[in-house]
Design a protein around this nucleic acid. Structure first.
Length: 528
RNA sequence: GCGCUCGUGGCUCAAUUGGAUAGAGCAACAGACUUCGGAUCUGUAGGUUAUAGGUUCGACUCCUAUCGAGCGUGCCA
């Protein structure tokens, strides 16, 4: 909608290249401060320039009114124009608010270690990533999602030992868990499964740990996928660190084509990452020849860039922020454009319980599972909570609040608006076809505003996606729902003279809410 | 110490990326039901945007300093 309006305006004012939303909708639907910047060139007061520019729109058919106020130019759309946009939307609901961007994007997110189930902290990044993915798809981007599985390295072995100890405990032995090992109910559950599958004798001595590690890792990955699925999240592909390590020699050679990239010191191989802005250089191969974790990420990013995307997005937990510069340095040494990689940090979620800080530790086994929360409040509410906050702010919430299932949860508010419209349409006994054919003319201001807001979804999505601020979508939906409730309370719909006009507007509102919720991974309710 | 991310009503968050009078939701208070479902609506109260400077037509937003918070500062992943 904005694009069409902008085009019309640019015919008259070529230098106007962005439209804004006025602070108060009674000013108009769109606004521009263009007169302020022109004032410098023309050496005239912005107010006079704005007045002159307004004159050019006297004959326009998409505007009812264009006027200037304190140097701003405010545009009011016409009923005819809004009517034609409504028809477009209602006659092709599938494509409502879509776009045709054509960038190839690789999105990596979650990538939690397969050493345990996902906890509530992982859920934030997962929900954010999945929603970004859905929105990008809707806008036409060619986007692929990928999960990097850290299935190599020490922590998998720790998992194996932890499981071995867990099994010993189940079998009645006295067990002490050293500090660094994993514990918690899931280890005991897994131990019972392992005993059932391998038999008690299997756990006589520690020689089985390696095999056990791999077995446990596979089970954990299945569990993680299951956790994700219960929140409506699925990945296009998984990349295995262990598999990627087969390409280490090849990758290292490529890296060393740049003679500055690495050097040997104290028997270790270092990445010269400080050359590209890292605080210091990093070890990539230890004295004993084993590559470090960073090596894995170098291989992975080399593979990513070889696959030829226009843009790479990684969503990482904020505790990994120190990692960004070294990975980017490596990408540069490999000869790629590191600015194609964007890292979005998903800030820590601090938990409170009964008003007091609640510390989670996987190793201590006192963490709150994503699956538990979903069971208690449902996937919709969980997703919504995370999607109402910016990803880069420290988020704090009380677990007890999250469990509350009442009107303080805004998802009900939005769903209620959608259900309400559906009920009204049913009560009116009008056919959908009849309603859709109604022509909208001479709309009152509040009718226009409601309809205008419903048609804004595409703009909101673009804005939310480009700024990576997905909370704008939920903000928008809340606002739209609020307008609907206000409208409902003010106007009798069924049985009124304007029944058809009202219903048509409401259908567009419902479509917008439904589409928006769907992109957040939430199915709109037709009945509460 | 250094680096990153931040600091907005009592609480949780917004503010069109430098634009109009800093807005919502909770919580508090006062109202609206012989209802097209009140899971709603109307209103009141609550702010020196952490502090001090600076940049300009204009600053919550940019710059500098100070204070405060979280995270990082592993040859763990």
């Amino acid at each position: 909608m904005k694009k069409i309006v902008l085009k019309h305006i640019q015919k008259e004012i070529p230098s106007l290249n962005a439209l804004e939303k006025p602070k108060d909708i009674s000013f108009g639907h769109y606004a521009s401060p263009v007169a302020f910047s022109l004032a410098k060139n023309y050496k005239k007061s912005p107010i006079i320039i704005a007045d002159e520019l307004c004159e050019k729109f006297k004959q326009s058919n998409i505007f009812d009114n264009v006027e200037s106020l304190k140097g701003y130019i405010n545009f009011k759309l016409s009923s005819t124009f809004l009517n034609s946009l409504s028809n477009e939307a209602l006659n092709d609901e599938e494509n409502f608010a879509k776009d045709n961007k054509n960038k190839k994007i690789l999105l990596e997110y979650v990538s939690a270690n397969p050493t345990g189930p996902l906890h509530i902290g992982h859920a934030r990044g997962a929900v954010f990533g999945d929603t970004l993915y859905r929105v990008a798809k809707h806008l036409g981007y060619d986007i692929q999602s990928e999960y990097y599985v850290n299935d190599a390295g020490n922590q998998i072995r720790l998992l194996g030992i932890s499981l071995y100890l867990g099994a010993s405990e189940v079998l009645g032995k006295d067990v002490e868990y050293p500090e660094e090992y994993y514990r918690g109910d899931y280890i005991i559950d897994l131990a019972k499964k392992a005993i059932a599958e391998f038999g008690e004798d299997y756990f006589k001595d520690e020689s089985v740990i390696e095999e056990l590690s791999t077995w446990a890792k596979d089970k954990m990955l299945i569990l993680i996928k299951d956790n994700l699925k219960s929140a409506g999240i699925e990945f296009d592909s998984f990349a295995s660190e262990k598999e990627l390590f087969k390409l280490w020699d090849e990758t290292l050679k490529k890296l060393q084509r740049d003679s500055d990239a690495t050097y040997t010191k104290d028997g270790k191989l270092w990445l010269n990452s400080s050359k590209f802005g890292d605080e210091k250089d990093r070890v990539i191969v230890r004295e004993d020849g084993r590559p470090t974790y960073l090596a894995g990420d170098i291989i992975y990013h080399n593979q990513k860039f070889k696959r030829g995307y226009d843009e790479y997005i990684n969503i990482w937990g904020a505790d990994h922020h120190g990692y960004i510069s070294r990975v980017k340095a490596a990408i540069k040494f490999l000869g790629y454009d590191e600015s194609k990689l964007e890292v979005i940090l998903s800030q820590m979620v601090s938990l409170l319980k009964g008003g007091k800080p609640y510390k989670m530790s996987k190793r201590a086994g006192n963490f709150i599972l994503m699956s538990d929360i979903i069971q208690e409040i449902g996937s919709d509410a969980l997703r919504f909570v995370f999607l109402t906050k910016k990803s880069d702010t420290h988020l704090e919430f009380d677990i007890d609040d999250l469990k509350k299932q009442d009107s303080s949860n805004p998802i009900y508010y939005i769903n209620y608006a959608h259900a309400r419209i559906n009920q009204l349409v049913q009560k009116s006994k009008k056919s959908l076809g009849n309603i859709k054919q109604t022509k909208l003319e001479n709309l009152e201001d509040d009718e226009k505003n409601l309809l205008f807001n419903a048609l804004l979804l595409n703009e909101v999505l673009n804005d939310a996606y480009e700024s990576r601020q997905l909370q704008k979508i939920s903000e928008y939906l809340k606002n739209l729902a609020s307008l609907l409730h206000q409208f409902y309370n003010k106007n009798q719909i069924v049985g009124s003279e304007k029944e058809n006009i009202y219903l048509k507007i409401l259908l567009v509102v419902a479509l917008s809410i439904r589409t928006g919720l769907k992109l957040m991974g939430i199915e709109a309710k037709y009945k509460m």
